[in-house]
Structures are given as C-alpha cells and as structure tokens.
C-alpha cells in the first residue's frame, strides 16, 4: 500500500473500484425504481412457471350461476379461453371486473371462485356482473395450487391445444397486464 511510483496506476484503479461498484448498483436501483413506477418491473412477482405448459389436471364443481369444468374441458376447446381466479373477498377482483366484462365480448372467460363460500361468490357476481361463461368453485384452494396461483385475481390464457400461453398474476385493469394479454391473444390467433 505504499505510494511508490510503478504501482500508483494500479492503486488508482483499485481505489476507483468501490466507486464503479456503487455506480453500477445505483444505476440498477434507478432502473428498478423507474421500472416499478412504469409498472414494467415488479421485484415481487412470483413468476410461477405455468406459461407454455399444458393445463394441470383438475376439476372444479359448479358454482352458481355457472357450470363447473375440468382439464378435459379445456383440452377440448376450439378457441382461446381465459381462466380467471377470483373471490368475493378480494378488492382487486372488484377493481378488475369492468375490464373482464369488456373482455367477455372478445373471448370466453371461465371463472374459478377461490376459497370463497358459494353463496358469497354468487352474491358477488349478482352485484358486480357476471363475465364468466362457466364458473367453478375451488373452496379448498387446492386447484389454485396446481395452477401455481398465489393470490387473487390471477388469469391464464389457454390456447386451443389446452396449453397455457400466458399467465397474469395481477388485475387486468393494469395497462401492462392488458397489453401482455393482447399480445398473447394475438399469438394464439395466428
């Protein structure tokens, strides 16, 4: 660590390393913060790896006012279907409802009531509107685990071959999520 001539250049480089490191970290933080504000980066995303896989084996019982369904039904579809996990006790689900009601005209939406008493779920759909073509009940929450759902609302886009092509782990009222769904939908149509 002496200040003799030849190693001075190397010393300068060494002493600049902390600054360089802090600069990289600072830039990364800046990227994260601005990404979080734009909604393009969420460090708390779980990123469950369901996209690209066939739908898991499952069956959900009927939930008024709809009819339940199973993995067989999804393997037999001929047009893309959106699977939406919801619950009457979930505030973001209420928030995304208008979006779902609009989306209903573009593709069929099948709902799964997550950990919800059938009466509550039915009442919720009476008040908020019912965007679902079919509705099943996952009262125990076990079907959701097979899908890799960690909370509600979450949505999955299923292609006609029964494959999950897109998974959204947030409400559809978010622009980012909406755009991602549109892109995925465009791909299945092609």
């Amino acid at each position: 660590m002496s200040a003799d001539g030849p190693s001075l250049g190397r010393r300068r480089v060494m002493m600049a390393l902390p600054l360089a490191g802090a600069g990289v970290v600072g830039a990364a933080f800046w990227g994260m913060l601005s990404g979080m504000q734009k909604g393009s980066f969420n460090p708390h995303d779980i990123n469950a790896p369901s996209a690209g896989r066939p739908v898991p084996d499952f069956a959900v019982m009927d939930q008024t006012p709809g009819v339940g369904f199973s993995s067989h039904d999804l393997q037999a579809i001929t047009a893309p279907v959106l699977i939406n996990f919801f619950a009457s006790w979930c505030i973001p689900c209420i928030a995304e409802m208008p979006q779902l009601l609009k989306l209903r005209d573009r593709l069929p939406i099948w709902g799964i009531a997550y950990k919800d008493k059938p009466d509550n779920a039915a009442g919720f759909l009476r008040h908020a509107g019912n965007p679902y073509a079919r509705i099943g009940s996952d009262f125990e929450g076990r079907v959701a685990i097979d899908w890799g759902v960690s909370g509600v609302p979450e949505s999955f886009l299923i292609a006609p071959d029964g494959k999950i092509v897109w998974h959204g782990a947030a409400g559809l009222n978010n622009d980012e999520v909406q755009n991602a769904l549109d892109a995925a939908l465009g791909q299945t149509k092609r």
Binding site: S2, A3, R12, M15, P18
Partner: peptide, 14 residues
C-alpha cells in the same frame, strides 16, 4: 467514493 478514488491513492503507507 469519488473523493476516495481521487485522494486515497496518495495516502502514505503504514
């Protein structure tokens, strides 16, 4: 850290 990078190399050895 910039000040460190600038000034630290000239600190004398111990």
């Amino acid at each position: 850290l910039a000040l460190f990078a600038w000034r630290a190399p000239s600190l004398t050895a111990g």
